[in-house]
Design a protein around this nucleic acid. Structure first.
Length: 902
RNA sequence: GGGCGAAUAGCUCAGCGGUUCAGAGCGCCUGCCUUACACGCAGGAUGUCGGGGGUUCGAAUCCCUCUUCGCCCACCA
């Protein structure tokens, strides 16, 4: 019967919850991880699974090592994302948020969040996440909101928050401003349109290259590089914007690259950050007309940037007459991309389009809805980031925290050292409302409370309508979750945390900013280690995403293969920081290894448990003299495994730790020890192997528990002597016992394995049925002591399926030979079925292989530089090897001769 | 334009600062339902470690360079 995780996993999880083992023990040194809070509306995808499995492995490892393990869970209100989800639902009913109004809309969102917000948390439980659910947080919790507000007010009072009038990224779909980080770069194949701007004086035209012709109604001038001799004559002249006829000046500016396009640049200050800077240098008094509305259509709606601050001057003369006539009527209301097409057609028709070139460039898109972002002049709240970043970098330089893998250092440093101010206002309704108040008399301040009247003049006050960027609340996660700004016991105990586990995609969004807020408000780092894991991708290396439809539903995987299998794949297939590649087309290949391993463990458990009496002696109570070579070998391997696995976990090499434990359980314990020990399991001699088996199974389960917690717990429960309330989840992590380390046993049992493998190999080579028992003889030489094999004679007989094994006798009749060690031989009697020709070929192939190796070894050893410069122990080892091989070769050669091979 | 990463068996990848490192899983071939396990057991085959150069006694492993992919950053009109 194969192991079925389906009934086991939920039951085990329930037991953990009931026992309260996920809450940190009251004593002991804390180990703290704060979860990257998933969006409340999220449903679990593989990315979450990977992220949370890694955290769970680390937290379970440290919990077993006796730390007070605190894994703080929670969710993020995710302003834009959540608002979008609810708006989409409203849209299905033909309604918009404007129909509801702000208050009712926010109620609607709360309603939705309260109903569906726990979905992902329940899913995290399904995959085994051992979060401290008693400390669950949400970024819109009352306490948490207080922290957000406190931070805002403090920054405001320090003058680190300011109103900026500048070109920001605007999403025409989400209808909000975005930060630089939220506008993702996408390399795009576009066009460079060469457009003719007629000179005002009718003396011809100049050509300007642009990728965004639809912005031209917002042009306030053209510039060329002062060094550009081609255009000297244009200085001071004016041109007409095609299709609108608005007259704009020509000037010079250093930033214009002569080699790009025509060397003439159209300046659209309200829709291009670079042009904004140019305009302020060249035409400081100029108006900056907005010609694309908030929704992405052409027209002049004023909007957030409508009050430009500067008045129109003579530099811009509106030929069409009248205010607001910059965009010709036929384009007003057209979507920007339609407008682009139409404009190009018209330009072509009026012979004002000189040419169109293909042009690859980076287009920014909204990280939430993928809409092409519109640069737009606007008034927004910004945080001055430089001082915050500098504090972090001072701590970073002192090594107060570090990033693994290290290769992210450069990226992190580069971003921090070139930090730009953070646009924190969003034109949304869902989120923390910006606590800035303005009275009728123009007094403005940030407030912890909601004032009704102005403290200075008692006038009526109004609160800023916008909300804060979601990340302005999540950047406080490591301390706001523990009660800050109050000085709580939790905060004192759990700050700073230890390991922050996340993907590199939110290094800037979240990690860097948490560091800044941590240093700023807590006076020190929020965590010691930032562990950046890979990203879940499909086999074509594409990020898994809903839109591509290449995702894998972790719950389907759990249903088909079990949570342990899912976890196994996440852990074993991702080397430190490497991406996790999964094939959505072939779940079997992707997840079967974990399921198979769980099944193997289950069966090892079935066997071992079946052998154990209720009172198994502890391993330390076993008389050392009763240990056989096989016992000593597996016990020694166990110690090596403990050391290797512990070290690997400590270094975040989860894949290595998992694989090492896998090898111990499967390849060493099951494949060799269990098979070797079977004959000893009956009778009075059974006590020792029982103790060894119990010890090895217990050890394997402990070591594997962080990775496959369910099956390990299930089996561990069944070990004899378990008290009813004992749980593996809080059992002690094994420590290597030096007294059980036995390098000699490693070596000697290694020889036993070699002999068995040789015999098996010979059997296969000569196609001897497994049913046929064979007779074999071992002739030892050199260090290959006959006593070694004598002690394990039964093992060899059993595992090589022999009839009898002679030691140091004279091999009878004809047989197949294998040489090993210091020229020792194993001879398998094969009267009748042996083919001398075949045997000759086998042996001479072997001899050939040996000769080749020997030659290269000899070359190395006769190389004086090698002997002189290589480390002594390397040379000594090579010498030993050479001697053994030489002996083997001599024996082989002798055999060939005696067989009469040519 | 700058930075980073990847190129190793048919596939997905290990190989953690050099001398049994040429590996694992899956797939493939040959035998096996050997009373824990066919989600298994045993035995096999497959790679000029992307190309070129260099350092060294010795290089998938370090340095340089080229090619191909991917990612991040940038005021690529």
């Amino acid at each position: 019967m194969a192991y079925d995780p389906r009934p086991v996993e939920p039951a085990i999880y329930k037991r953990w919850l009931e026992a309260g083992v996920f809450q940190p023990r009251p004593d002991g040194e804390p180990y703290v991880i704060v979860i990257p809070p998933p969006n409340v509306t999220d449903v679990l995808h593989v990315g979450h699974a990977l992220n949370n499995v890694i955290q769970d492995v680390l937290i379970r490892f440290e919990r077993m090592r006796g730390r007070a393990a605190e894994w703080l869970p929670g969710t993020d209100h995710a302003g834009i994302a959540t608002q979008n989800v609810v708006e989409k639902r409203l849209a299905k009913e033909g309604r918009s948020r404007f129909d509801l109004g702000r208050e009712r809309f926010v109620e609607e969102v709360w309603c939705f969040v309260n109903k569906t917000g726990n979905t992902i948390l329940e899913q995290l439980k399904v995959i085994g996440s051992s979060c401290d659910w008693s400390r669950l947080r949400f970024t819109l919790d009352e306490d948490y909101s207080r922290a957000v507000r406190e931070v805002f007010v403090r920054l405001w009072d320090e003058g680190l928050i300011y109103r900026g009038h500048r070109v920001i990224h605007w999403c025409p779909h989400c209808l909000t401003a975005l930060s630089d980080e939220e506008a993702e770069h996408h390399e795009t194949q576009g066009n460079l349109y060469h457009i003719k701007y007629p000179l005002e004086d009718g003396s011809g035209f100049v050509t300007v290259a642009t990728t965004r012709p639809e912005t031209m109604f917002g042009d306030i001038g053209l510039v060329f590089n002062p060094k550009d001799s081609r255009y000297k004559a244009l200085q001071g002249k004016r041109v007409k914007i095609p299709l609108s006829g608005v007259v704009i000046p020509i000037a010079t500016d250093e930033v214009v690259e002569q080699g790009f396009g025509t060397g003439l640049l159209k300046v659209t200050p309200a829709h291009d950050a670079n042009d904004f800077d140019i305009a302020r240098r060249v035409w400081p008094a100029s108006e900056m007309p907005l010609v694309i509305r908030e929704d992405g259509t052409l027209g002049e709606d004023g909007g957030h940037g409508g009050h430009g601050g500067q008045k129109a001057t003579a530099a811009v003369k509106n030929k069409g007459g009248g205010q607001g006539g910059r965009v010709p009527a036929e384009y007003v209301g057209l979507d920007r991309f339609e407008a682009r097409k139409k404009i190009i057609e018209r330009l072509k028709a009026t012979d004002l389009l000189e040419k169109v070139e293909q042009h690859k460039h980076s287009v920014r898109r909204c990280y939430r809805c993928d809409t092409v972002v519109e640069p737009r002049l606007s008034d927004q709240w910004f945080v001055t980031m430089k001082p915050l970043a500098e504090t972090v970098m001072a701590g970073y330089a002192k090594g107060e925290f570090h990033i693994v893998p290290e290769r992210w250092n450069a990226t992190f440093e580069n971003w921090m050292n070139n930090i730009r101010d953070w646009n924190i206002s969003r034109q949304l309704w869902w989120g923390h409302r910006i606590p800035v108040f303005t009275c009728a008399n123009g007094h403005q301040w940030a407030d912890r409370a909601d004032p009704q009247t102005c403290p200075k003049c008692a006038a009526h006050v109004e609160q800023d309508p916008d909300v804060l960027d979601t990340w302005f609340s999540s950047w406080l996660w490591p301390f706001a979750t523990f009660g800050w700004p109050d000085d709580t016991p939790d905060l004192r105990r759990f700050y700073p945390g230890h390991t922050l586990v996340t993907g590199p995609d939110i290094l800037f969004f979240w990690v860097a900013r948490m560091l800044m807020s941590g240093y700023k408000f807590m006076g020190q780092k929020p965590f010691r280690t930032v562990y950046l894991h890979g990203i879940a991708r499909d086999t074509k290396h594409r990020k898994m995403s809903k839109s591509l439809g290449n995702g894998i539903d972790p719950l389907v995987v759990v249903e088909k293969f079990g949570a342990d299998a899912l976890r196994w794949t996440c852990v074993a297939n991702t080397a430190l920081g490497a991406d996790l590649l999964l094939d959505p087309e072939d779940l079997e290949t992707t997840f079967a290894p974990g399921r198979n391993f769980a099944n193997k463990l289950w069966n090892i458990g079935q066997f071992v448990l079946g052998q154990l009496p209720t009172n198994v002696p502890a391993i330390e109570a076993v008389d050392r003299r009763s240990l056989t070579l096989a016992d000593r070998w597996i016990l020694s391997r166990a110690q090596a495994t403990v050391r290797a696995a512990t070290a690997a976990f400590e270094q975040f090499r989860l894949d290595e730790a998992a694989k090492r434990c896998f090898e111990f359980a499967w390849n060493e314990l099951a494949d060799w020890y269990v098979e070797a020990v079977k004959p000893r399991m009956t009778g009075s001699e059974a006590q020792t192997p029982q103790a060894v088996l119990a010890y090895c199974l217990d050890l394997s389960l402990r070591l594997l528990h962080p990775v496959v917690p369910f099956i390990s717990e299930e089996l561990w429960q069944k070990l004899p002597g378990r008290k009813a309330d004992e749980l593996l989840a809080v059992a002690r992590w094994p420590v290597a016992r030096p007294e059980l380390e036995d390098p000699r046993a490693d070596q000697e049992f290694g020889r036993v394995k070699t002999v068995i493998e040789h015999i098996r190999s010979i059997r296969a080579e000569y196609r001897v049925s497994p049913k046929t028992r064979l007779r074999a003889t071992i002739v030892t030489r050199g260090n290959d002591k006959v006593t070694t094999f004598d002690g394990e004679r039964d093992t060899i007989v059993r595992l090589a399926q022999l009839d009898s094994l002679a030691l140091d006798g004279v091999p009878q009749g004809v047989g197949a030979h294998a040489v090993f060690g210091d020229g020792s031989e194993v001879v398998v009697a094969l009267e009748g079925s042996i083919d001398v020709q075949q045997e000759c070929r086998r042996l001479s192939d072997e001899l050939g292989r040996l000769d080749t190796q020997l030659r290269s070894l000899a070359a190395r050893l006769t190389n004086e530089s090698f002997v002189a410069r290589a480390p002594q122990e390397v040379v000594a080892k090579e010498r030993e090897k050479e001697k053994a091989w030489r002996d083997q070769r001599d024996v082989l050669a002798g055999k060939l001769k005696s067989l009469g091979c040519s």
